[in-house]
Design a protein around this nucleic acid. Structure first.
Length: 212
DNA sequence: GCGACAG
DNA sequence: ATCTTGTCGC
């Protein structure tokens, strides 16, 4: 449970962090390490995973699993207080330092302009992109059948795209990347859920299942 | 007041 | 996210 006062505190912190987010050019280069992050839950236990792949390769070169007792409930807009500790734990166990983080959740496509992806990027000082399956705030202006622009409070913060199976995904700027970076990532993973995130998702699902 | 609401 | 069987659709 999170008290009303604590929620206000976390919202204030989030607003401050938002002002620290940098939108900057990020060039994808051969050999770069792309890391997918995801988490799953089993009762009061949270499990997270970080899966690292070299750009254009499909076998992980490093991966980690992290488990920790959950202390907070999920509150829309405050996902980070529940999930950031888990993701940081998984990142901390990696044997390598990723060049780019792909995180399940939003970046700037957030009411306070600082979703989980932005916060993880800021705290680790690693460029990041948020990729969510549902929109939390803002609107999508579809340019064509498969690509659209995500706008929040008049700002172009990300790209919405439709998977080959018809599922809409919402990718937004986390930290130290631009819309162009997101465009390249979407193309790189062929308009599907990015492989690193897919593998991280499978890893946590598997880990959750084993401990039951 | 009503509805919406990342994972 | 998670609880869950059969079932609608490609």
């Amino acid at each position: 449970m999170i008290s009303e006062g604590a929620s206000l505190l976390f919202e204030k912190i989030q607003e401050k962090l938002s002002s620290l987010v940098k939108i900057s050019e990020f060039d994808l280069k051969e050999g770069m390490l792309v890391c997918g992050l995801d988490a799953a839950y089993k009762e009061n236990i949270g499990i997270s995973s970080a899966i690292v792949l070299k750009l254009n390769e499909e076998s992980p070169i490093a991966e980690s699993i992290f488990r920790e007792k959950i202390t907070y409930d999920y509150i829309p807009g405050l996902l980070y207080i529940r999930e950031a500790p888990l993701l940081l734990g998984a990142l901390n166990k990696l044997s390598v330092k990723p060049d780019l983080l792909l995180i399940d959740g939003h970046g700037l496509a957030h009411p306070r302009r600082a979703g989980l992806a932005s916060i993880i990027g800021l705290l680790t000082d690693i460029p990041s992109i948020g990729i969510a399956k549902r929109l939390l705030t803002g609107n999508v202006i579809w340019d064509n059948e498969k690509i659209g622009r995500i706008e929040v409070a008049g700002e172009y913060v990300g790209i919405a795209y439709r998977t080959h199976k018809g599922k809409t995904m919402y990718a937004s700027i986390g930290h130290m990347v631009t819309i162009q970076t997101i465009n390249k990532i979407i193309l790189l993973y062929n308009y599907d859920e990015p492989l690193p995130i897919m593998l991280a998702h499978r890893a946590v699902r598997k880990a959750i299942k084993i401990r039951s």
